[in-house]
Design a protein around this nucleic acid. Structure first.
Lengths: 254, 254
DNA sequence: CAATATAACGTACGCCGTACAGAGTTTCAT
DNA sequence: ATGAAACTCTGTACGGCGTACGTTATATTG
């Protein structure tokens, strides 16, 4: 699976792509396609088959054109993925209508992100420092900040808090998505995998009873999650701890 | 950059590889290489040039053999990466000698992981559900649990707490590493990138003053971090909040 | 209508992982 | 001692990728 990068080419062209500014062509044949059409097709492929399956040839196939035609609309695969990324983020919803103060609002942000990553797992395979500065990212950052505005935090703390919460949503969604992708790729559930692994491990000399805690806790956790790992539980548990920690900070500011 | 997967082939053979069990061959020519030699070379390449640059041909080149010779020792690239992964995790150090109870011990785990990911950034590009069950992973899980043993948490809570802390270390290291990799790839620092972006964004119609909080907070944060994002600061901030949250949980158990 | 700008396409290059077959080397059974 | 067997190593080849490049077809402008 490929982790793709953004920002390869001309930044100006990238921005025009993201914000839908077309250079207004005058002569030449009518374009058969539009950028949005290409992006929609690409997202559909990535959603259904993963970022691995997303190739320029595949997108072109899906649109009934020759591979190289795509490059008329998009400078390279990197820019295409930039636009895909921004369009996907546009599905996020602001927390403004969530009643009850900063805590439920932050919870909404986390869950909304969690859901998004599950709808578009390929988002997790795109490297997003220097993110594509499209409309969705602007909107996202703004409504995230609104969730923690006016509760006594400094600007930097506001930034840190939303980064912590959304970053946590991303990282726990990553575990969850990885589990699902592993199941799809291997055709084997987590439990099945463990049942295959356990007897093999006993045949290997792991050095005796060196792992008493692992054995005990691993068994309890495995029982609880019905699998090696419980992403949903880890998400809820971690979110509660993080919000508690933020509460401590806010309380100390009063 | 490629996110590589593990566990493709025969699980038994994978385990033997990880635990250094050799099938004791009797006949045939003396092997020119060893698995460990191959793994060391591969890690060196990945450390220096990233997982992108790691190809079987490249490893073979580095060892002075033909590409296909590597397959004598390792069933496929996936298994090679499994072993690389385990060998890298072996660099982690137990928190037992850290004085002062669970909190400094968990801090040690987080910082130790953070450092490891910076020494071996490619670790972040390896998908690790169904992790390679080598000696290092066993040791790691065990000493992680020791950090929170006997402080009144249930087994499941112990598992959740260490997963939260190490998961957080991973996700904040990911941001930091991505920043560094972006700089290396583009030859452009974060600040330079923003300085390129800002004037271009002003030329685009972003819809007027729709982002007042982003503007204010973004400016403060940019000032504070001397860049768009402050991974080190985010790490320290998040770790403090998370440990505060865990403290709340532990206190409630007493 | 001619000039020109644009869209679409075919071909080709250099990467990748690795299947496969063959050649060379060492050890075991006899 | 010798042939068979087991093992290492290698060269070739395949199908996939992103995309550079040059050519052809099409629509608009003067």
């Amino acid at each position: 699976m490929t982790t793709e990068y953004s920002g390869g080419g001309d930044p100006k062209r990238s921005l025009e792509l993201l914000w839908g500014v077309q250079p207004a062509p005058r002569r030449g044949p009518k374009p058969k396609l539009t950028v949005e059409e290409i992006v929609r097709t690409a997202i559909a492929i990535a959603d259904a088959e993963g970022l691995d399956a997303l190739s320029m040839r595949r997108v072109a196939d899906g649109l009934g054109v020759a591979p190289m035609s795509i490059y008329t609309y998009v400078p390279s695969k990197a820019e295409l993925i930039d636009v895909m990324f921004d369009r996907a983020l546009a599905e996020l919803t602001p927390p403004d209508d969530v009643p009850g103060g900063w805590r439920p609002k932050l919870e909404h942000l986390a869950r909304d992100n969690w859901d998004l990553y599950h709808r578009h797992p390929w988002l997790l395979h795109v490297s997003v420092v220097r993110p594509p500065m499209g409309p969705a990212i602007f909107a996202k950052y703004e409504f995230e900040l609104r969730a923690v505005d006016g509760i006594g935090l400094t600007d930097v703390e506001m930034d840190s808090v939303v980064a912590l919460v959304t970053g946590f949503a991303e990282s726990s969604a990553r575990v969850s998505v990885n589990v699902a992708e592993a199941e799809r790729r291997t055709g084997m559930s987590d439990v099945q995998w463990w049942e295959t692994m356990a007897p093999l491990l006993e045949q290997i000399d792991t050095g005796g009873d060196e792992y008493p805690l692992s054995a005990r806790v691993g068994a309890s956790a495995g029982m609880e999650y019905q699998g090696a790992v419980g992403p949903r539980h880890a998400f809820e548990f971690g979110l509660a701890r993080i919000l508690d920690g933020i509460e401590v900070l806010i309380a100390s500011r009063r």
